[in-house]
Design a binder for these strands. Structure first.
Lengths: 123, 123
DNA sequence: TCTCATAGTCTTCTTTCTAGACTAGATCGC
DNA sequence: GCGATCTAGTCTAGAAAGAAGACTATGAGA
């Protein structure tokens, strides 16, 4: 009897929605940027300062991707010096919900990870 | 002259638990590996095949990190040819819960992202 | 006039990732 | 006996990505 799960040998990221999403927001900068935008719209340099250790280039690229994918809206005010504001779209805000769950998990388990890692280093 | 705003000026990832966690599992390979390990223990090459487009070195490194951080347990059977099995620890399994939330979000929203991206490309 | 500010981009250098060759040691075919 | 084969990696070389910092235009303020 052949395997009943005769799946069409799906390509790495083909039909899998998590792959499609991870390819885009599966890096720490995207997550941190979205988190930084929770609550209020922010300007480019504000985000730089808030995230702290992201390079201009990386933030620029991350925001561009987030905008492309519909998580973030970018508004340019034709002033001098230039002013550009970033804010979450509806989709971006809805993403905060699973992200909150992740943060909620991280909080109580953060210590356990640190301990495990410590134990590993000692060994 | 020292900065006058003498705020605690928290280091980028210092007290923030999400930073601590993202630094470790905030890449797509870790998430995909954990997902692949859901349900049953797997061998190295099984994981390679299942994930599909990860390199040996990256999988090796990812598993090493996940083991260090206490998400995964590695068991070596001294046979020839060698057999090594990877399985989730309690911590690893508990992480699947927030991850499921993420996947649950991804499923209905995957299409919206693709559409947003498409629209962006056309423009 | 000189300096500062913003929101990026461009360039250079460093780090990371990928692809593929290579390893050990028992077993199988010949 | 002789070589090919299996696994779970490591090693190496080349390719790609990221970081740091210089640089841009424009107007305001000293």
């Amino acid at each position: 009897m052949p395997k009943e799960t005769d799946e069409p040998k799906q390509q790495p990221g083909a039909g899998c929605p998590i792959r499609g999403v991870l390819d885009r927001i599966g890096d720490q900068w995207s997550l941190l940027t979205l988190e930084a935008l929770e609550g209020e719209k922010k300007r480019f340099n504000e985000l730089m300062r808030e995230i702290g250790d992201i390079s201009k280039q990386m933030l620029s690229k991350t925001l561009k991707h987030l905008e492309q994918d519909g998580f973030v809206r970018r508004t340019v005010y034709p002033e001098v010096p230039p002013r550009v504001e970033y804010e979450l779209t509806e989709l971006g805000r809805s993403f905060l919900i699973p992200m909150k769950t992740l943060i909620g998990w991280a909080e109580p388990n953060h210590a356990a990870i640190t301990i495990a890692r410590q134990r590993h280093e000692d060994a």
